[in-house]
Design a protein around this nucleic acid. Sequence first.
DNA 1: CATAAATAGTTTAAATATGAAATATCTAAC
DNA 2: GTTAGATATTTCATATTTAAACTATTTATG
Lengths: 152, 152
Amino acid sequence: MRTTEQYGRKADLALTMWVKLVRASTTFGRLTGKDIEQHGLTQPQFGVLEMLGHLGPLTIGDIGKRMLVTGGCVTVILDNLEKESLVERMRSSEDRRVIKVQLTDKGELTFKTIFGKHAQMVAELASVLSEEEQLQLSTLLRKLGLALKDKQ
Amino acid sequence: MRTTEQYGRKADLALTMWVKLVRASTTFGRLTGKDIEQHGLTQPQFGVLEMLGHLGPLTIGDIGKRMLVTGGCVTVILDNLEKESLVERMRSSEDRRVIKVQLTDKGELTFKTIFGKHAQMVAELASVLSEEEQLQLSTLLRKLGLALKDKQ
DNA sequence: CATAAATAGTTTAAATATGAAATATCTAAC
DNA sequence: GTTAGATATTTCATATTTAAACTATTTATG
């Protein structure tokens, strides 16, 4: 993406980094997504299943915060998961505004079936980088991500 | 995202890297997107403007390949940009299947007005990393991105 | 207690996004 | 030169996403 020296060295450095970040993220997501779709799930749907499988029941708000999407979006994703009987909503008795979402038995089974294979695929895709490089990348991305979070 | 040692060290390393990649990319995009939206453009719309501004007229197919989206999607984005008179389609005379897209004068002006500020903002957001760290990150992301491209 | 403000979710409209089918055009093979 | 296949774009149906408006509930304040 030719932006060489048009906006100053610092801006060019940042812009090329940014382009590579988006590309790597998009391409990675596309590849793992194809795998997930073969199980009849979309990526966001799988994201919710994974979250509930690892962390247990969560509220709509929690899910949105973790996935970095709005509540309206979570509502739609859950509607579609509920149609497939993979999750269920439960109104909280302490605070009746709150809804807790949890996996059904079918959801639990689906999660366990898919996730192991998914983890393998992610590992394989990442394996173009050595373990040390993956650690370096994680560290840099973590630093970037944390700093950006404060600016939201 | 607690996945410690549940699926083997390699998978965990890759999974945490993957999560950080998506988060950094999403958060970065959200922040620059807010800036762009203040000019009445969406991110994809600005992406097209930027591409045409830097590279000159492109075909629909070129745009889709560079943005990593399907042709159908490009059609819609261009429709919306055309409504605002920011771009125009021109049927190629050599190959009448092909459409070349170019900025209008208004589009050129909009691009120039927004992009300088955008580049500054990207540089500022990236500045939480030193220049050396940004270079390191670019290098690692490039390696990852290139390797993944082949697997599509 | 009554009302105002805050919070949790849902709904709605508009912009993306995909994949598949349809249209128009070009290229190749006979 | 005609037909078959390939290519470029659009159209369509469906899904995701956002922001903003709305509903229901809880908390705070007087």
